[in-house]
């Protein structure tokens, strides 16, 4: 892994549910890079992300993410890896019994941050995603796009070096989807690496970035036209 990479895979083989997901794959993502991961349903896109946030382990090879060697990382250390990466899912995963502020603050509380810092940082990230005015709203009172913004704010709270997004626009209408993509692009412009799984080619075409395709266990850079 070069010092310029936030993700590096070297000869990595992964099987999940008895299916070959990656077969001797090499891949790297540099600091501040934006990359889409595309592929057919069941090709292993989500499993690839699971490997990066260590929900699954590789069978072979070396996986390094944000300076952690994921292939040998003991279970106890996994939470520390996850504090260095922001994770965004399609289904939001917000806590419905807490308001927007508490949903974001939660990410900092679990890492033992001080109250004053939490307040300052939550307001900062809510400002970044344009939701300062909705900090007291409950998740169910927000639109899908707004909920996804809260999730992104929560993912950014710990100032990660890498954002992993699994179909972040999958549950959104085209307008909300564009607005989320603009936000992700803006975050990337601030220097954070983004690895986004999607099957929406329109998004890939509209917001062009490096694109890799997972197909039959291999991961290759492709050009989307």
């Amino acid at each position: 892994m070069s010092e310029q990479d936030v993700i590096s895979l070297h000869n990595v083989t992964v099987t999940f549910d008895r299916q070959m997901v990656l077969d001797q794959v090499n891949f790297s993502l540099g600091i501040g890079e934006f990359c889409y991961v595309i592929g057919k349903t069941g090709a292993g896109k989500s499993s690839f992300l699971k490997l990066l946030y260590r929900d699954i382990k590789p069978d072979k090879g070396i996986v390094k993410v944000a300076d952690y060697d994921v292939s040998t990382l003991p279970d106890k250390k996994v939470p520390y890896l996850r504090r260095r990466i922001g994770i965004v899912f399609q289904d939001f995963q917000l806590l419905p019994d807490r308001n927007v502020y508490d949903n974001v603050a939660f990410a900092l509380r679990v890492t033992g941050q001080k109250k004053r810092f939490i307040k300052q940082r939550v307001l900062e990230v809510l400002g970044l995603v344009g939701l300062s005015h909705k900090r007291k709203a409950m998740p169910n009172d927000l639109s899908g796009g707004e909920q996804q913004r809260v999730v992104i704010a929560r993912a950014l709270a710990n100032e990660p070096r890498l954002l992993l997004a699994d179909e972040p626009t999958g549950n959104l209408d085209p307008e909300a989807s564009s607005s989320i993509m603009e936000l992700l692009q803006q975050i990337n412009n601030r220097g954070m690496a983004v690895l986004m799984v999607t099957h929406d080619y329109d998004v890939v075409r509209k917001f062009p970035n490096r694109t890799v395709q997972i197909k039959e266990g291999s991961l290759n850079d492709i050009k989307v036209v």
Binding site: K76, P79, Y80, L81, R82, R83, I87, Q93, L94, L95, P96, F106, A107, V110, T111, R154, A157, N158
Partner: peptide, 17 residues
């Protein structure tokens, strides 16, 4: 379980959860 999942997602240790 949603709370536990969200806590794991943002890097809470098992002891903390």
């Amino acid at each position: 379980r949603d709370l536990i999942r969200a806590m794991k997602l943002v890097g809470a240790t098992n002891g903390f959860i």
